[in-house]
Simulated assay, not measured.
Amino acid sequence: MAKRDYYDVLGVSKSADASEIKSAYRKLAIKYHPDKNPDDKDAEENFKEAAEAYEILSNPEKRQRYDQFGHSGNSASGFGGGGMNMDDIFSQFGDIFGGGSPFESFFGGGSRGGGRRVQRGTNLRIKVKLTLEEIAKGVEKKVKVNKQVHCHTCNGTGAKDKSSYHTCNTCGGSGSVRRVTNTILGQMQTTSTCPTCNGEGVEITSKCTTCKGEGLERGEETISINIPAGVSEGMQLSMSGKGNAAPRGGVPGDLIILIEEVPHESLKRDGINIIYDLYINFADAALGTSVEIPTIDGKAKIKIDPGTQGGKILRLKGKGVPEVNSYHKGDQLVYVNIWTPKAVSPEERSILEKLKSSVNFKPQPGKSEKSFFERIKEYFE
């Protein structure tokens, strides 16, 4: 099923500013929140869809890529906001509501996110070099990324052993404490970050000796990246959750992939079109010939008509690069150049001296090409 336009999901225009986008998401999150719509699968999907749209449109870089390339710019082949779960949503976007528990003031407590502070790993940036052929067809790249991973000794908890890692007794694991005070207006409830666990919901009594309680260490991961066809130099793609790990069950950061094009030995890219400079000698231009040229799909034979002039452009339709997130493809443009030798033999010079006096060797618009070829034929016979 095709994804809906993110602006349509949030019900805002493409010119909407950050505050409008935040406000629109807040209204939808309240409307479709699972606590307000228990066991309603449609509401849950709408809730996730709104969060995914907000993830992209609230981030200036991701929004720019989305505006330029559509869903492929951030979410094609596993990039961007696709596949978000409830934990991701509550941990990443709960704070737009303010306070301890993001939905507490609307649904009377007991929300999924609680007030627990979930840490987020930092983003990673890498460069991926692509050939013109890979760009034209799309490619899967496997890259080794050096990054922060969960500590192999404590499995990311930061604790020396299981007995050293337990739910906070003060907040019961919620990360927040609730206080009720009596006022002249009645009872008032306030929520604040738990002072014992600092909002993490857990206590560590003895730190892991390998990671010193951080829950992280340097490691290497091989990541498979499916790059869509039509990407261009400088374009950035993102893979959600493939960045640095976060300690104690936090949300990992994103992996930002910067596209770098490897120059082709004979083809040049101009947007979605491919440019090839073809050089032929004067005799082939005058008499016509067939030549084999490179394309992104391999070799191709093209016909050069008799009397072809230098500067003529031949078009090979559909032999260019596809647009990202589109079925439209560019063309290959063949620029015909007449090659002139810098040195000639005495025999060649004699022939050229005789030919240059021919009337057909002087520009004469409208002159029949038939008489030219007849004269050439007569001379060489």
Rank of each mutant, 00 (worst) to 15 (best):
K27I: 03
A343M: 12
N360H: 14
I296C: 04
G175T: 10
L258Q: 12
E61L: 15
S371E: 11
Y379A: 00
D277M: 04
Q187V: 07
D67I: 09
D17H: 05
I274A: 02
V12P: 02
G100E: 14
I227E: 12
L352F: 05
S232F: 11
C194I: 10
G138Q: 02
L185G: 13
V321Y: 04
F106C: 10
E220L: 12
S266E: 04
S91M: 09
N198C: 06
G98C: 03
D297P: 01
K342Q: 15
V231I: 08
Y66N: 02
R125Y: 12
H33M: 02
R112L: 13
S238A: 00
P38D: 08
G100F: 07
V139S: 09
S164R: 06
K268G: 00
E217M: 11
L316M: 07
N244R: 05
G172A: 10
I275L: 05
H150D: 11
S101H: 07
C211L: 13
P228G: 12
K41R: 13
L287E: 06
K22F: 00
L287K: 08
K147R: 14
A136D: 00
P294L: 11
N59C: 14
T340F: 07
V149S: 04
G250F: 03
R375M: 12
Y276Q: 00
D39C: 05
G318M: 10
T210H: 07
P60C: 03
P247C: 08
L130K: 04
P247Y: 02
R120P: 00
L132S: 04
T209N: 05
Q64D: 15
G115V: 14
G94M: 02
N226F: 10
L314I: 15
K299F: 05
K160G: 06
P252A: 04
W339I: 03
G215D: 06
R116S: 06
Y276A: 02
K162N: 14
S232M: 13
R349P: 00
L57W: 02
I126L: 01
V149I: 09
V128N: 02
P247I: 09
K41G: 03
I204G: 12
A24F: 07
V118R: 13
L333A: 07
P34C: 03
Y335A: 05
F107T: 15
K142H: 06
I272Y: 11
I135H: 00
A76L: 13
A245E: 14
T191L: 07
G320I: 03
I351P: 00
I302T: 15
T210P: 00
E134F: 00
V336A: 07
L278M: 04
H152T: 14
V202S: 11
I296W: 07
E292K: 13
S101E: 15
D87K: 13
V321E: 01
C197E: 03
D270A: 10
K48D: 01
L267W: 00
N325S: 05
G271H: 08
S345C: 09
E353N: 10
E374L: 08
I296V: 15
A286Y: 09
C151N: 08
G110E: 08
D39S: 06
A16R: 09
A43G: 04
S23M: 07
T153E: 13
